[in-house]
Design a protein around this nucleic acid. Structure first.
Length: 551
RNA sequence: GGCUGGGUAGCUCAGUGGUAGAGCAAGCGGCUCAUAAUCGCUAGGUCACAGGUUCGAAUCCUGUCCCAGCUACCA
């Protein structure tokens, strides 16, 4: 379907060293919502998540456990794919840097940079921890006894020099600044862009892009003499070393689009519309990565969105070692996958950090999902079913339905905020409408109308008409909200539609079905709207006991 | 240390010169369709602190205190 707009988005690939916490998955949940929204809009959507599996630390962790690296990595990656499954994350591809096509992509990018004259042989010098390898200066402490690594305070560090390939990042400062000037919104939020601009203006140094002290990585494709390091039997000369981190990890975004094996796919999906990343890797994505692409003659992604973090009480960063992280499995167990997705994205603004806690999640779930939305669905279907004998009432025309105007406002805000990645604001817009629908019930008091309709007096017929109209509007409101929120709550949406007696036209990942904006018009249920019967009401999002907590 | 952003109701935050706002949590009342739900009302703030400009400052200026981010090779 070449006519459909395409939308390609990615998350940062995860480093599979531990079972992921909810703070790690936050980015993937947010990106999954965006992907589902585009799929439901009818865009040809490609969504990439994955794992970054090469590093000396991974190799050493495997060795420490006496396990084969590949077997070890398989087991670690499984933790990530199963966590994504639990949270209903639906990537079109889960890319692994150990995938064969990724190796080819990474090597091709090195070759291109070399061909552009941006790769040269030099020396990397730095503090070397015998237990851990080269250490960044920022990770070390200076003590009276010399430099020490925090993980091994009793080990004396050595200053070592290693032969290394370098990438001429320093040559790209002006071109990067020009790109920032020509595309003022390409890094968002704004303050994240400004940090990078300040960094570029301060001057860029070249970066090393190979290592010869460890071998768990993609073979560096170029030998010292500038020829290929591939040998006649197809193996790679270990003397050439391996590609170091950024020319490996960052490449995944183009591998995932089809580079270099599938030029047709690559032309279709690249440049990416959106990279969603965390603030800790901003520099790599908005300085190094664009320079690498420029060197290779490849267009730059349209937008990089830098999100913040979930913080523990007191503003501490979450981590396994601090013991303050939320286990996604616990949250899913308590709130359901839909509830976990909703509260995470509602409690944490997608452009800032926020403190979260088990209590704040439960409070948000109960207030928004159980009380406001879930109860609205339940009371609406119960009343319509009881007062109209199960026939689904049709909504009134927009001009006669007070809720239709409120919906237009809500949908506009929802869509605008969703498209600009303010996911928390998008939900707030939708929930304004949920509030309006609950107030509408109080104002119209369908139970009183139902009584009047049965009174058998002069007003009964009018009351009957009004009752049907009110309930029709209400049922329509529930349909609209439930469908609109589907990117956030992908398994609740079809259940809500089913209780309303509507079919759910989308696949589990949001593909297929008509463009969602058609269905989100007031009265826009299409052929399915014309007649039908209501399903059986059943609480979708049961209220939680506030005492519920893990452990 | 330098640069940037921020400190407003119990909690999370909006509010950039003109009588302090929202949501949640709390209290009271109404209603009964509903998941002890929902609707309405109430309470609660010397807007970090100290000066200054102004008829008037949460909002502008100066200083102080506190917090966060950035300040290059970790995945």
């Amino acid at each position: 379907m070449p006519d459909r707009p395409r939308f390609y988005l990615t998350t940062a690939i995860a480093y599979p060293n531990n079972k992921p916490g909810l703070h790690t998955l936050y980015e993937v949940i947010g990106a999954d919502v965006v992907a589902r929204w585009h799929r439901m809009k009818g865009d040809d959507t490609r969504f990439l998540t994955g794992t970054d599996e090469h590093s000396v630390n991974i190799a050493e962790s495997a060795a420490a456990q006496g396990r084969d690296i590949r077997e070890y990595v398989e087991s670690m990656v499984e933790l990530f794919t199963s966590a994504e499954d639990e949270l209903l994350i639906a990537p079109d591809r889960f890319i692994r840097t150990t995938d064969p096509d990724h190796r080819r992509a990474s090597q091709e990018m090195v070759r291109r940079a070399y061909a552009s004259g941006d790769v040269y042989l030099g020396k990397y010098e730095g503090w070397y921890c015998p237990n851990e390898g080269f250490k960044a200066l920022s990770d070390l402490h200076e003590t009276p006894d010399g430099m020490r690594c925090p993980n091994h305070p009793n080990v004396t560090l050595q200053w070592l020099t290693e032969r290394n390939w370098f990438f001429r990042l320093s040559a790209y400062a002006d071109r990067l600044l020009a790109h920032y000037a020509a595309h003022p919104h390409w890094v968002q939020p704004e303050y994240r862009k400004n940090e990078m601009l300040a960094f570029i203006r301060a001057g860029l140094e070249d970066i090393s892009i190979s290592r010869e002290t460890f071998h768990w990585g993609i073979p560096f494709p170029i030998a010292e003499n500038g020829e290929t390091s591939e040998r006649e039997d197809g193996s790679w000369d270990p003397e050439a070393g391996v590609i170091y981190v950024w020319f490996d990890a960052l490449i995944n975004y183009i591998t995932g689009a089809g580079f270099p094996d599938d030029p047709t796919s690559f032309a279709r999906y690249w440049p990416a519309d959106l990279h969603v990343i965390g603030k800790d890797i901003n520099r790599f994505h908005t300085i190094i990565w664009p320079a690498m692409l420029m060197s290779a003659g490849i267009d730059l992604p349209h937008k990089v969105w830098v999100h913040g973090w979930l913080l523990a009480a007191g503003g501490d960063r979450m981590s396994k070692s601090r013991g303050n992280m939320l286990d996604p499995s616990d949250v899913v167990k308590a709130l359901g996958a839909d509830g976990a997705r909703y509260v995470t994205l509602r409690e944490v603004p997608f452009d800032k950090d926020a403190e979260v806690s088990w209590d704040s999640f439960v409070r948000r779930y109960n207030a928004d999902l159980a009380n406001d939305y879930g109860n609205l669905v339940n009371r609406s279907i119960t009343m319509a079913g009881r007062y109209l004998d199960g026939a689904r009432p049709a909504p009134r025309a927009p001009a006669e339905a007070p809720l239709a105007a409120a919906w237009a406002t809500a949908l506009e805000g929802y869509q605008r905020n969703l498209e600009s990645l303010l996911l928390h604001e998008a939900l707030a817009s939708l929930w304004d409408f949920v509030g309006a629908a609950n107030r509408f019930v109080e104002t119209e008091a369908p139970w009183a109308l139902a009584k009047a309709a049965k009174a058998g007096d002069a007003g009964a017929a009018a009351a009957e008409v009004r009752l049907t109209g009110v309930l029709g509007d209400l049922v329509e409101a529930v349909r609209l909200v439930s469908l609109a929120v589907a990117p956030f709550m992908p398994s609740i949406a079809p259940r809500a539609l089913d209780q309303l007696g509507y079919p759910y036209p989308y696949a589990a990942d949001g593909n297929g079905g008509p463009p969602i904006l058609d269905l989100l018009a007031w009265g826009g249920a299409g052929g399915a709207a014309e007649s039908g019967r209501l399903g059986t009401p059943s609480p979708l999002l049961p209220r939680l006991d506030v005492e519920t907590a893990p452990d």
